[in-house]
Simulated scan of single mutants.
Amino acid sequence: MKAFLPLAVLVATSVPAAAQSGDLAAVQRHLQSVNTMTAAFSQTDRNGQVLTGTLTLKKPGKIRFQYQKGVPILIVGDGKALTFIDHSVRQVQRWPIGNSPLGVLLDPNKDISRFAKVVPSGDPRVVSVEGYDAKHPEYGRINLVFARDASAPAGLMLQGWVQLDAQGNRTTIRLSNQKFNQPVSDGTFRWNDPRRQGRAG
C-alpha cells in the first residue's frame, strides 16, 4: 500500500483548481455512495505504538473500532455521539460526532467542499483530502487518503487517514480488506458500560 506522506509535506504545496474540483467531487460522490463499510485497520499513535482491529461503519453516524484481543479499549459511534470506553479503568467519555474530524466519514449530507481541499500526494494514483473547519479549530484536522480504483465506490478506495487533534497529537489509520455496502446490524454499535458491569463488552 502507498505509504502516508507526512501531513506537513501534504499541506505545503497547492493543487491546480481543476484537479481540486474534480477530485473533491469524486471524494464527495464516494462518501455519499458508501452506506456501510468494514475493514481491518492498523492504528499508529504519536508515540509509534501500533494497534490493530476491525472497523465497522454504517451511516448515518455509526462507527465501531473493535481493537485486537487484549486491548481494553473500544470506540463506538451510535449515530449521535462518539464514545471512548476504557475497560481497564472503567472509564467512558462521550462527545458529539460533529465535533470530531470523523464526522466527514459519517454524515452523508455533509458538503465537504465547504471545509476540505485536495492536497498533493506525490502519486497520481492517490487522492489526498484534508478536512479542517476554520470556525472550529478545536475539532482538529483529518487527512483522508484514497487510491484510484475503478472497482470501488465512485472509483476511489479509502486507504485510511491521518488525524491531528487540536493539541497536535497525530494518529494514523491504515485500512485493508475494505468491503462496502454489505448488511451491518445496528447491534454492532451497542456496548456494555464498564461503570455498571465491570466486564468487557
Rank of each mutant, 00 (worst) to 15 (best):
I142G: 01
P137I: 10
V119A: 05
A39K: 00
G79W: 01
V104N: 05
R125M: 14
R90S: 11
Q68Y: 08
P153Q: 07
R64I: 01
R125V: 07
T54W: 02
K135R: 15
S113R: 13
Y139G: 10
D86E: 09
A154R: 02
Q93H: 12
R64Y: 03
K80F: 13
Y139S: 10
A39G: 00
A152L: 01
E138Q: 15
I97L: 14
N47M: 12
P60V: 02
P101S: 09
N109I: 00
D86N: 13
I142N: 00
R90M: 10
Q93R: 15
T36E: 05
T56G: 08
A40I: 08
T36C: 04
H136G: 03
G79C: 03
D149M: 00
T38D: 09
D133W: 11
K110G: 07
A134C: 09
K80H: 14
D123P: 06
F41Y: 10
V129W: 02
G61R: 03
P124R: 06
V27Q: 10
Q32Y: 04
T38S: 14
H136R: 12
S151G: 09
K80Q: 15
P124D: 07
L102K: 03
F146I: 10
V71S: 01
I73Q: 13
V92W: 04
D45G: 03
S128Q: 12
R125H: 12
V127T: 12
V50E: 05
V127L: 11
G70D: 08
V50W: 01
N109V: 06
A40E: 14
T83C: 06
H136E: 07
K58Q: 14
T38M: 08
K58M: 13
V119L: 05
I85T: 01
I112A: 00
S100Q: 03
K110Y: 10
K58L: 13
F146Q: 04
K135E: 15
S113K: 13
V34T: 08
G77H: 04
I63T: 06
G122N: 09
S33T: 12
V71I: 15
N143F: 11
A150W: 03
E138F: 09
R148L: 03
E138C: 08
G140V: 00
P60S: 09
L144S: 03
Q32L: 06
A81G: 06
R94D: 05
P124M: 06
V118I: 15
F65Q: 00
R114G: 10
R148C: 06
D107F: 07
R148T: 05
Q28L: 12
R46C: 07
P153W: 02
N47F: 14
L144V: 03
S128N: 04
I112W: 05
G53K: 04
D107A: 08
K62V: 04
A39V: 04
K58V: 02
L102W: 07
Q66H: 11
D111Y: 01
